[in-house]
């Protein structure tokens, strides 16, 4: 008997564009030339954070589509707990993201020459950020009724989050007053963690990881609320 998890995986794998993004983007990002004054590929890792946000957003499209097509009502009337439905979706998306993160990490390990400590911290940060991004995508979709609205608002918000959070710009370039605002964004702490990994202050990297886990908990708690319409 097909499980819910397998079904979600099948539906995700059927979306060719997203699967192409999962494979192509890590390869493209590895090919970006790094600034010569930095010994770690922080810029590519930062961009990869933005890619993760978009990929998880597109993956979690299934959830909002289920609501739009009224599939969720039929699921609700079936003997399936809403918790199982959420766990299956969250688990499937996280698994796809782990595969993508690992692919990017292996490629970056081959292409770039950086300290071991950066690669280990970077891998941990990417994995945790993948979970946070999945949680954020589920939370974001729970706010909207239609996918078209959700995607149009998200493209603006995600880019803003990326710029303010230091993903597409190094954090040192951010003015101080903007930095005060940016702390409420999970992207800031991902970029901050990468910065600290470069500077080898691992205590701060662990703190960033904890903060990202905290954000993931908030997003999952709020996003897990059952919505039928």
């Amino acid at each position: 008997m097909i499980t819910l998890f397998e079904l979600v995986m099948k539906r995700a794998l059927r979306q060719r564009l997203i699967m192409a993004m999962v494979i192509v983007f890590p390869i493209l990002l590895v090919l970006i030339p790094q600034p010569t004054n930095v010994e770690t590929p922080t810029l590519s890792y930062g961009f990869f954070g933005l890619v993760m946000m978009f990929v998880t957003f597109l993956l979690a499209k299934q959830v909002i589509e289920d609501r739009e097509m009224r599939t969720i009502v039929r699921i609700a009337s079936a003997p399936i707990h809403h918790r199982d439905y959420l766990v299956a979706h969250f688990g499937a998306y996280t698994l796809i993201m782990i595969i993508q993160v690992t692919l990017f990490w292996v490629l970056s390990f081959i292409v770039w020459d950086a300290p071991w400590s950066f690669f280990i911290s970077g891998y941990a940060l990417m994995l945790v950020f993948a979970i946070t991004a999945t949680g954020f995508a589920l939370f974001w979709h729970s706010l909207f009724k239609r996918y078209t609205t959700s995607v149009s608002v998200f493209s603006v918000v995600a880019n803003l989050m990326a710029v303010l959070g230091g993903m597409s710009l190094p954090l040192v370039l951010l003015p101080d007053h903007l930095r005060r605002v940016a702390v409420v964004l999970p992207t800031y702490w991902y970029a901050y963690g990468l910065e600290q990994a470069t500077e080898k202050t691992f205590g701060m990297v662990i703190l960033s990881l904890c903060i990202l886990i905290g954000f993931a908990t908030i997003f999952i708690t709020v996003g897990s609320k059952r919505r039928l319409a």
């Binding site: 903060i211 897990s224 609320k225």
Partner: peptide, 21 residues
């Protein structure tokens, strides 16, 4: 901006959200 302080703020927010949820 102090990560430890923000972390505590985030814990407080998380606990509150779980309570409200």
């Amino acid at each position: 901006q102090v990560p430890a302080v923000f972390f505590l703020w985030l814990i407080a927010v998380t606990v509150m959200i779980i309570r409200l949820r």
